[in-house]
Design a protein around this nucleic acid. Structure first.
Length: 593
RNA sequence: GGUCUCGUAGUGUAGUGGACUGCACCGCUGAUUGUCGAUCAGCUAGUACGAGUUCGAUCCUCGUCGAGGCCGCCA
């Protein structure tokens, strides 16, 4: 069919103006409607669907058409024509035209697919992933991967426009045993040693700065051997960025610009300029999260003082110390909830780490709820005033040590927002979160550890605190947050070996440990490392939110499932003994439980 | 590691401590010349696995396996 008079066209592209053209359509049998003496076949490719019609006058071709089934792959030639009056299909982009087949070539047959591509109903995710190549034929996945492509391209275009060089960094690197668990790759040539897959190209991009690249970006694959969530995959993609001779504000402006450009060019939407900024302390206080969902209000309200010296002993006691919070959280319409509903919410709060949950509701027949008997009229009036609660609302109370109370209340806030439909998938609420502490105390060991990573620089002018009160140090670190998801984080880095060494020492590393793990990096810092800083944005999450999806698995072509398995390939899998022998590995059975 | 929910034909679902587990789609056979979720007639095909309670279990209990959500974890 390599006829110069025949144009190969996309299945979704034909319009009335194409009538009279002789075209070739290649694609899958989407649906067939067999009327015995007349057969309609919808031919599908990524661009859409065109109706092809077979007439018995075609003889042998018609006989072939009778055998066509879903997902067979065909090539059809014919002259496009307008549909007879009254048979147009307004629901179809190509509904004004059809192609009466003159020739048919069956390029491949399909077995009966386990699920119907054309169906509205969605098979279980396990089935979708097992037959991913079929799932990918569905419009939803084709759309999501298209959006993903456009977003990636927009990022590349933007950073290219701003003088960034895309530089690839290796995937077989050195394990630096801090942070998440590494994926390890055994070395054959150096038996008993291992490469690690990068958790991020962090050190490498810093060395690129030392290498004088100035402005670097990369669409980088990262690997972390930790348990998955709907928004976390063991293997994920970042837009990784690093720049020299920049202030924090300059990095923020550049990154903010990239996101604004992406939203405009890939999604056709404008976002605020500038993006709102919150401090870490403010985010925790008002939203109970370092990644607040700003699509809705419902802020946390501090009410400890209202309970001080009052009848409710638990909160009165908590109110005596600045280390505690008593947080009120308005639940619009919450008075309609049953006792049973509140019990369920209390159970939920306990899974978040709450010891319990107090609540009052303002029902038409008076104040109700678990602590209603401690809430007299003046207190009720005060609480309503401060929370902005109306008749029919409820207020939840979380009281505990500051940080824990904030986190519990923050998660309850999201739950309320979710139930009230306030987390709209087509709304995009960005914000920066700044002013994180540089160090924090490890709750298990009691040791001082870094909040994000050990290369982050403290805010200028805080040198005096470094030894006297390290936990009071503020980091030049920033998170970009969208709709309650952390899109990415970055920082201004330490660029002198001397200061980096002080940080490592402060974290309790010995000279030997520093040399063993970071010796190459410390050495690089000593050869004229310029001031630098950067950021990495999680592409998978950005695409997920942009597509209105709830799971990364719907925006990744071949994702792992929750247990980190690829159910299509069946990975991970065992390997032949010879492969283990080459690597000097032996599998040890786990000890009996 | 913990916890919750789920597992019924190829797919999506319904239902019940007791008789042939119902429906839709897919598939198969036949009919059908203007459909587009084609239509009409017929057919095929199922309780994840194991143990227990019970006269009797798809249903109740426990375990195993698998899946998903959340907590821990994720510098």
């Amino acid at each position: 069919m390599n006829d110069p008079n025949t144009a190969r066209v996309s299945c979704g592209a034909l319009t009335a103006s194409d009538a009279g053209r002789r075209v070739e359509l290649d694609g899958w049998v989407h649906r067939r409607r067999d009327h015995g003496g007349l057969i309609f076949i919808d031919v599908r490719d990524r661009s859409g669907i065109t109706q092809v019609i077979f007439d018995p006058s075609l003889g042998e071709v018609f006989g072939q058409a009778e055998t066509l089934r879903s997902e067979d792959v065909i090539r059809v030639c014919g002259v496009v024509r307008s549909r007879p009056a009254g048979t147009e299909n307004a629901k179809l982009a190509t509904g004004q035209v059809e192609v009466p087949a003159a020739e048919l070539e069956i390029l491949n047959r399909s077995e009966t697919p386990p699920f119907v591509i054309a169906a509205e109903e969605e098979p279980a995710e396990e089935v979708r992933l097992r037959y991913r190549y079929l799932d990918l034929r569905r419009p939803r996945m084709q759309r999501n991967l298209t959006v993903r492509h456009r977003i990636l391209k927009a990022f590349r275009d933007y950073f290219d426009d701003h003088g960034f060089l895309e530089v690839e960094t290796p995937n077989l690197i050195k394990s630096t045993p801090e942070g998440a668990r590494d994926y390890l790759v055994p070395s054959r040539l150096h038996r008993g040693t291992f490469y690690a897959l990068p958790q991020s190209p962090q050190i490498l991009k810093q060395i690129l700065m030392i290498g004088g690249l100035g402005r670097y970006m990369q669409i980088a694959r990262c690997f972390r051997d930790e348990d998955s969530r709907s928004d976390r995959q063991p293997e994920f993609t970042q837009v990784d960025v690093e720049m020299t001779f920049v202030s924090q504000d300059e990095v923020l402006a550049m990154m903010e610009g990239s996101v604004r450009y992406v939203w405009e060019h890939a999604l056709g939407q404008t976002i605020p300029d500038p993006l709102p900024r919150l401090t870490y302390a403010e985010a925790m206080r008002r939203f109970g999260s370092d990644k607040p969902d700003l699509r809705f209000e419902l802020e946390l309200v501090d009410v400890a003082d209202a309970f001080r010296g009052g009848a409710f002993g638990l909160f009165a006691g908590l109110a005596e110390s600045e280390a505690n919070r008593v947080i009120a959280l308005r639940w619009p319409g919450g008075a309609a909830l049953s006792r049973r509903d509140f019990d369920a919410v209390t159970e939920l709060a306990k899974t978040f780490g709450a010891k319990g949950l107090a609540y009052v509701s303002f029902a038409p027949d008076g104040i109700k709820g678990s602590i209603a008997r401690f809430v007299d009229e003046p207190l009720a009036a005060q609480l309503r005033e401060r929370c902005g609660a109306q008749d029919g609302d409820a207020i939840l109370f979380v009281g505990d040590a500051k940080h824990g109370a904030s986190e519990v209340a923050g998660k309850l806030r999201l739950e309320i927002g979710e139930r009230l439909g306030l987390r709209k998938p087509d709304a995009f609420a960005f914000c920066w979160v700044l002013g994180f502490p540089l160090f924090e105390r490890d709750e298990e060991t009691g040791e001082i550890t870094f909040s994000h990573h050990p290369f982050t620089a403290p805010a200028p002018g805080q040198e005096a605190l470094f030894d006297s009160d390290p936990l009071a140090l503020t980091a030049q670190h920033y998170d970009l947050v969208l709709n309650g998801y952390e899109l990415g984080s970055g920082s201004i880095r330490n660029h002198t070996a001397e200061f980096q060494n002080r940080v490592f020492k402060r974290l309790g590393l010995s000279d030997e440990q520093i040399e063993d793990r970071f010796g190459f990096f410390m050495e690089a810092l000593r050869y004229g490392a310029p001031p630098h800083g950067g950021m990495a944005l999680g592409i998978d999450r950005i695409v997920m939110i942009a597509c209105g999806e709830n799971s990364l698995r719907d925006v990744i072509a071949f994702p792992k499932n929750q247990t980190a398995r690829d159910v299509m390939m069946d990975a991970p899998s065992s390997v032949p003994d010879q492969a283990l022998n080459d690597l000097g590995l032996r599998i040890v059975e786990p000890p009996p439980a």
